[in-house]
Amino acid sequence: MKQEQPHALEKLVVVTGDAIKPGLGLLPEDRQILEERVSIIFHVAASVRFDDSITYAVNMNVRGTREVAELALKMKNLVVLLHVSTTYCNTDREVIDEVIYPPHGDWKKSIEMVENIDEAVLRLITPKILGGLPNTYTYTKSLAEHLIKDYSEKIPAVIFRPSIVISTLDEPIKGWIDNFNGPVGLMVAGGKGIVHCFLADEDITSDYVPVDIAIKSMITAAWYRGSQR
């Protein structure tokens, strides 16, 4: 980018924020810039850990999404808000279609719950809260989908559900990745020769998608929704 289009980098404006804080932790002047100048939002911020407490997962993945949606409502030139969800927020179903399934909980009450109930108590009742879902990640990402669905009555929105995101196919270079989330650690260990075998169910398919393919699809989906009336 620096070599081919150096002036394009002048378009980038970095602001300080925190998705887990009310108001996204934005300074008033930064919020004003976003409200007046931004027309497309890619909401990718989330915790993808499976062992987060219900308090942290709701605050990050649900309340954080609400704060982004509230910011979007005030944007003067908003064309589209693309929210990154996950294929696995409905793990209690054998087949997942491109529809919004009945909620696993009430996103508004969930935010109120973690803001007002002691975390030690919430840890005890977390299995009851999750119902048929395996962890706080899938549960809170499911709630966030319904939050976006509700806000989509007022703002143009897209819910994007990638599967298991892994290293790049081609861009910016083959095999690039900056974390060991999900299966990546196991894949690296296998490539390095550290792991030679592991126990697995041969009937289960691990559905991976390279991160550069996921990003291209996100851009395409945002363009498609933003071009609609």
Rank of each mutant, 00 (worst) to 15 (best):
P102W: 04
V58T: 14
E202F: 07
G25K: 00
D203S: 14
R229D: 04
I194Y: 09
F160C: 12
E4Y: 09
P6A: 05
I111P: 02
S163T: 14
V15C: 10
K174L: 03
Q228V: 06
V15L: 13
A144C: 05
V44A: 08
S206K: 06
P210D: 03
H196K: 14
G226M: 04
V58D: 02
Q5G: 06
I215A: 15
V114G: 05
E70L: 12
V58I: 13
G182A: 14
D97Y: 12
E98D: 15
W223L: 11
S39R: 13
V80E: 00
V188W: 10
V15T: 05
N116V: 05
K192P: 00
A120F: 06
D118P: 01
R93T: 10
K192Q: 09
E36D: 14
M113P: 00
E145L: 07
S142Q: 08
E145A: 07
R31E: 15
F198P: 03
D201L: 07
T16F: 10
K128M: 04
A200M: 09
N90A: 14
Q3M: 08
R93A: 12
L78I: 09
T220K: 13
K192H: 06
S142H: 10
A157F: 00
L124A: 11
T126Y: 00
W107G: 01
M113E: 04
D212Y: 05
G131Y: 02
V38Y: 01
A189H: 05
V165K: 00
T65W: 00
V44M: 04
S227V: 03
S53V: 02
